[in-house]
Design a protein around this nucleic acid. Structure first.
Lengths: 236, 236
DNA sequence: GCTAACATAATTGTCAACAAAAATGTTTAT
DNA sequence: ATAAACATTTTTGTTGACAATTATGTTAGC
């Protein structure tokens, strides 16, 4: 009926949803690419989808826009952000600043329990990869990076990595090669090996190479402006 | 009359204020320590102060809370955040991840015009320092770091540095030695010299040392929880 | 005099109606 | 037939009133 999602109102039994949950749900859908860049997020549709009042939705969209994952145009409404090539470069530049350091700290601080968590996670990644389930694969790939930030045990860095990973999902959706899953899990495996041997320098530099690899396999430089996809699509 | 500010309604002539401006104004007051940590930000007072409706204020406070500079307690209202010692450590750890890299990039990318801007800024810092004007000094010290992020020309990093600098102002207000201004401008001068000679490695490592210096001159480890300041104050 | 229960006031959270703007569809004139 | 002007519908933005919760002040009981 509406384009946002047909899993509506299955959560009505549990009283009401907080805005934090709504943000998380929408974010998840964006990361999974069920909500591709440019999608209109109409307030009415979201109200029905989550069974909440307009105010909640409005706050949630404002929060999402503050994370740069939703664009809020005055009197026009909310849209899933479609990052430009320039923004994509900035996101990766920022990731290269932060995540090698996060990986280093995580390698230093990981407990045995953390290593087990990582191992379980990598198994899931492999299964999703072998099963050729693209959505699941992208989601888990991103989650690996978030998991490292959790292990690094720094809430500030965690928030930043979460935002950068979300935006990267959008970037891959726009500039990524259609068939290929962009994080190859061999890279993640290598990083995990550095963790097992407590080689934090190695973890850091491997993360650096990994991010550069992802960026180099994007097709930046082409589609200049995101004015409207239609004009780009229908000119040969 | 109200505790928030007596410079009320001087902006009514220019139609209305957008939430972005309100956020910026409140943020500025927090950075200047005119709004110390823990201050209640009542909606009604802010409405009067800025001459806008309650919705604008509500949105602004939500935005500020998403930047971790305002704490939003359900049914209790908004308060200026008072970071814990643990959070302070996390903020500086994050700054140490990001800002040395920002300084390196800025040193590589600075135009002649940028160098002039930096020089002018350092003059202002010196004047504020000599004039013993603490507020202005803190504000300008923070602004130096933001200025580097602008020169580095990365919007993502700029946003992060802005947030981290804001939170650092709160941290200094809580854990800083009362009399001393925490950024010594000699450090900033040295970093600027690295810029002049285009020594980006030096800029990076100087920034690292600078941040460590600031952190070491805080008194972390003491006041564990920020339950309520009063109980801590009135127990001898 | 001190504590607990109650009543009052103030503040925050929510909703529904209304206003404003934009997108869409229709008519009309050239 | 095309394009501009107008009307309609849809969607967003804002205001005000009301409900719910918390804070404060008062009284009653011990």
């Amino acid at each position: 009926m509406n384009s946002v999602g047909n899993a509506a109102e299955q959560e009505n039994r549990d009283e009401e949803l907080g805005e934090e949950e709504i943000v998380e749900r929408i974010l998840e859908a964006i990361i999974d690419q069920r909500l591709p860049p440019g999608t209109k997020l109409s307030e009415a549709a979201l109200c029905e989808a989550f069974g909440v009042g307009r105010m909640r939705i409005r706050q949630s969209l404002l929060l999402l826009s503050s994370r740069e994952v939703v664009e809020l145009l005055p009197n026009r409404g909310a849209f899933v952000a479609s990052p430009s090539a320039e923004q994509a470069r900035e996101v990766f530049e920022a990731r290269l600043m932060i995540e090698p350091n996060v990986a280093r700290l995580a390698a230093e601080r990981a407990t045995d329990e953390d290593l087990k968590r990582l191992e379980r996670h990598l198994q899931l990644e492999h299964e999703a990869h072998r099963g050729n389930k693209r959505r699941e694969s992208i989601r888990l790939s991103g989650n690996f990076h978030v998991l490292l930030a959790e292990i690094a045990d720094n809430a500030v860095a965690l928030r930043m990595v979460k935002e950068l990973v979300s935006r990267t999902s959008l970037i891959i959706g726009i500039f990524g090669s259609p068939g290929v899953s962009n994080c190859r899990d061999e890279d993640h495996d290598e990083i995990f090996n550095a963790f097992r041997t407590r080689n934090s320098d190695s973890a850091s530099s491997l993360m650096s190479k990994h991010l550069k690899y992802i960026q180099e396999h994007l097709e930046l430089g082409a589609t200049d402006d995101s004015a409207s996809d239609l004009v780009a699509i229908f000119r040969k």
